[in-house]
């Protein structure tokens, strides 16, 4: 007989107290990873701490500084938000790739990050967009860049009694846009063989002044590829430059071979995806 508890705290402080007082407690957001793992016997929580009734954890707020996404906001709410798709089309594309309409009714960006799958679709998009993770714990709040949040497959920098509260993104400057591409063998409902996100800023003459490229599913965590971003800065994103950035993305990859693809294939394809993401982000940036 299982004796698992269900708690629905109304405040961050209450949630942290519940986590701190029970080492077996697990945070429940949409449950699209946690409940699948629980039913498979891979996780045995002593309590589900449902954080969706904490106002700070659900909701989208957008102001002149940027975006604050409550960690447990369902993906569907992000996809429905007209302004987000205009400002961060790449991030919204990544969110829209998570599972099906049903999964998007539950799954959250916070859960995608905290589950720490190397193939999590939103993580590379968030890294490219300079997202920061707002974490609350008994000692107060700390803020960590998205590229430092995951530490390995299934592990993050969160301590047991900490909670991811929100993800914050700076508002994109003029002529800045993002894009995210992944490769899956089917057209829907599959897990990335490789993924790449890019954010590109152009000046009025079309020269790149800032760029970030991040890759997923090709290393134990999603990676920020500094060399790929650097290769773009000061150029007009000509073919030779794009090839350099693609090569940098491939070089940063440390993939494994599994049923989804061999290491060599992943290394190649992540370069192709990085290039496509850069080209798409730049095309969007030109229109702004």
């Amino acid at each position: 007989m299982l004796s698992i508890r269900y708690e629905a705290p109304r405040s961050i402080a209450e949630a942290i107290h519940l986590l701190a007082s029970d080492p077996g407690a697990h945070v429940l957001a949409g449950g699209t990873d946690l409940l699948v793992q629980f039913r498979a016997g891979a996780k045995q929580p002593s309590a589900f701490i449902d954080v969706k009734r904490i106002p700070d954890l659900v909701g989208i707020s957008l102001d002149t500084n940027g975006l604050r996404l409550g960690a447990a906001t369902p993906a569907a709410a992000i996809c429905e938000h007209a302004e987000l798709g205009r400002l961060w089309p790449g991030l919204v594309e990544a969110v829209h790739l998570i599972g099906s309409a049903q999964i998007q009714g539950r799954g959250s960006v916070g859960g995608n990050l905290c589950n720490a799958s190397p193939a999590a679709d939103t993580t590379s998009a968030l890294i490219a967009d300079r997202a920061e993770c707002v974490i609350a714990g008994p000692g107060g709040e700390r803020v960590v860049p998205a590229e430092r949040f995951c530490t390995g497959p299934g592990t993050t920098i969160l301590r047991r009694d900490e909670l991811l509260v929100a993800v914050v993104l700076p508002r994109p400057p003029a002529r800045t846009a993002d894009a995210y591409f992944r490769l899956i063998p089917r057209s829907e409902m599959d897990i990335a063989v490789a993924g790449a996100g890019a954010s590109v800023t152009l000046d009025a003459s079309g020269t790149c002044t800032a760029a970030r490229v991040a890759v997923g599913a090709v290393a134990p965590t999603a990676l920020l590829v500094d060399a790929a971003g650097q290769a773009l800065i000061g150029t007009r994103l000509d073919e030779a430059t794009l090839s350099l950035a693609a090569a940098a993305a491939s070089a940063a990859a440390r993939p494994i071979s599994d049923k989804r693809g061999t290491a060599a294939y992943r290394r190649h394809v992540v370069g192709v995806l990085a290039k496509r993401a850069i080209v798409s982000a730049a095309a969007r940036a030109r229109e702004r």
Partner: peptide
């Protein structure tokens, strides 16, 4: 496991898989 959609219901108007919603 959230893969098939046979358990689809609307919760507060949103489409969700009832197999991945805890009853409470």
């Amino acid at each position: 496991t959230g893969d098939c959609g046979a358990c689809s219901v609307l919760m507060d108007g949103r489409l969700v898989p009832a197999c991945l919603v805890l009853a409470p």
